[in-house]
Amino acid sequence: MGTSERGGALDRVVGKAKEAIGKAVGDEDLAAKGLLQQEEGAARDAAVSERARAEAARKAGEQVYDEEMSEAAQERAEATRAEQERKAEIREHAREREEAIARDAARREQTVEQRAQAREAAVEHLHEAALRRAEEIEEEAAEHARQARRAEASASELDDLQEDAERGR
Rank of each mutant, 00 (worst) to 15 (best):
T3I: 07
S4L: 11
S4G: 04
E5H: 03
E5R: 00
E5N: 07
R6P: 00
R6K: 10
G8V: 09
A9D: 05
L10E: 10
D11V: 03
V13Q: 13
V14G: 13
G15S: 04
K16Y: 08
A17D: 10
A17Y: 06
A17K: 07
K18M: 13
E19S: 12
I21L: 13
G22L: 04
K23P: 00
K23V: 00
K23H: 04
G26L: 00
G26P: 00
L30H: 05
A31T: 04
A32D: 08
A32K: 07
K33A: 02
Q38D: 01
Q38R: 03
E40G: 04
G41V: 02
G41K: 02
A42K: 05
A42D: 04
A42N: 01
A42I: 02
A43E: 03
R44H: 02
D45K: 00
A47M: 02
A47R: 02
V48K: 07
S49Q: 00
E50G: 02
A52V: 03
R53M: 01
R53D: 00
R53Y: 01
A54I: 01
A54Q: 03
E55V: 11
E55K: 11
A56P: 09
A57G: 13
K59D: 13
A60H: 08
A60Q: 11
Q63L: 11
Y65A: 13
E67Q: 06
E67H: 07
A73T: 05
Q74W: 09
E75S: 10
E75N: 15
E75K: 14
R76E: 12
A77N: 12
A77K: 13
E78P: 03
E78C: 08
A79V: 04
T80W: 04
T80H: 07
R81I: 11
Q84V: 09
R86K: 15
A88N: 14
I90Y: 02
H93I: 15
A94W: 12
A94Y: 13
R95D: 08
E96G: 14
E96M: 14
E96I: 13
R97Q: 09
R97M: 07
E98D: 09
E99D: 13
E99Y: 01
A100V: 10
A100Q: 10
I101L: 12
I101E: 08
A102C: 04
R103E: 14
D104W: 05
R107D: 08
R108A: 03
E109V: 03
Q110Y: 02
V112S: 15
V112T: 14
E113G: 12
Q114W: 10
A116K: 13
R119A: 11
E120V: 09
A121S: 11
A122P: 09
E124Y: 07
H127M: 14
R132E: 12
R132K: 04
A134L: 00
A134I: 00
E135M: 06
E135N: 04
E135T: 05
E135S: 09
E138S: 09
E139Y: 11
E139C: 07
E140I: 14
A141I: 14
A141G: 02
A141V: 14
A142C: 06
H144P: 01
R146Y: 15
R146S: 11
A148S: 10
A148Q: 13
A148P: 01
A148D: 08
A148F: 08
R149T: 09
R149W: 06
R150C: 07
A153P: 05
A155R: 14
A155D: 13
E157S: 14
E157H: 13
L158M: 15
D160A: 15
Q162N: 15
D164L: 10
D164I: 12
R167E: 11
G168S: 15
